[in-house]
Design a protein around this nucleic acid. Structure first.
Lengths: 162, 162
DNA sequence: TATTGTTATACTCTATAACTATA
DNA sequence: TATAGTTATAGAGTATAACAATA
């Protein structure tokens, strides 16, 4: 017997990439400003964690430090994020949004939510409830670190921050 | 009032990228062979639709024709896909998997399902059921074409094929 | 030595625009 | 003219490896 966990895994593999493609497109063509999903997630994290380090951001977004370094390069170049040295520990950075970043993030959020929501209008109240509950169930399951190698080898960091 | 559709949209925006990151990583580091998500989805489609054209594949996977052209280039170079001319209409291509592609696809499927399922073991039967139902609800909602511009402008094709 | 971050390098994904070949 | 596909070009995202600076 396959089991319910297997069925759920199959369903996730089939549907999540599909949903993701729409999410990505909505970001990319968003009225607010074109943003990639990692950019959106990074802005989101920095907005909620003022003064976070680059490592913090990498851990949350789920990319390597070099990837986040470049990602932040772009956001700084677009004048959405301020990148400064840390007073106490000069190895570290502190990241925060400037006013423009905050405004853009709010607009991007509103725009993306609206366009996703517009796709969901065909659904009934019970269906929406199932979707909401499923997302709540999946969030903690996929917030943890990637599977640890048997040898405990290094791998990309990931956290539970929201 | 925000409304349930809005809440669901927020939840999707928060959780789907998170899940997607794991899916992507499982593909990338899969025991079978490293595959990107678009590669996996393309193999999947071609496997289920022997003789499909490049446009068919682009429509299903949700990318432009040039993107699919390059994507298939890579799969052909890796000797997973056979790309041939169409007998009747010489503008068209026919795509199909060869034996190696079929084997690799099966292995990739099994590997990805297994590793996703292993994350879900913490969930109870009811929770798994909610997840399965939610995926079934979302699939048709996000299978359709991208939102049509008010002017009916051209955009990426997308189909409902599985 | 361990930690934080950057730079170098190399790939894939992605789109738009311009093009070729066929219908 | 319309359709199917490729090529040209450009930019983002991604990783690993090698490096620099600081603790």
């Amino acid at each position: 017997m396959a089991g319910a966990a297997d069925d759920a895994a199959k369903a996730i593999l089939r549907v999540v990439p599909l949903v993701m493609r729409t999410v990505r497109d909505e970001m990319r063509t968003g009225r607010a400003a074109p943003l990639s999903v990692p950019q959106f997630r990074t802005l989101n994290f920095v907005g909620r964690h003022r003064g976070a380090s680059l490592s913090d951001a990498a851990a949350h977004v789920g990319v390597t430090l070099p990837s986040m370094s470049r990602l932040v390069d772009g956001l700084v170049a677009r004048k959405l994020v301020i990148r400064q040295g840390h007073k106490a520990d000069r190895r570290r950075l502190t990241l925060r949004l400037n006013a423009r970043g905050r405004t853009l993030l709010r607009a991007a959020h509103a725009s993306a939510e609206l366009s996703i929501a517009s796709r969901l209008t065909a659904l009934g109240g019970e269906e929406l409830d199932v979707v909401i509950r499923a997302m709540a169930i999946l969030q903690p399951v996929f917030s943890g670190a990637a599977t640890v190698g048997e040898d405990g080898s290094k791998r990309r960091m990931e956290s539970n921050h929201v």
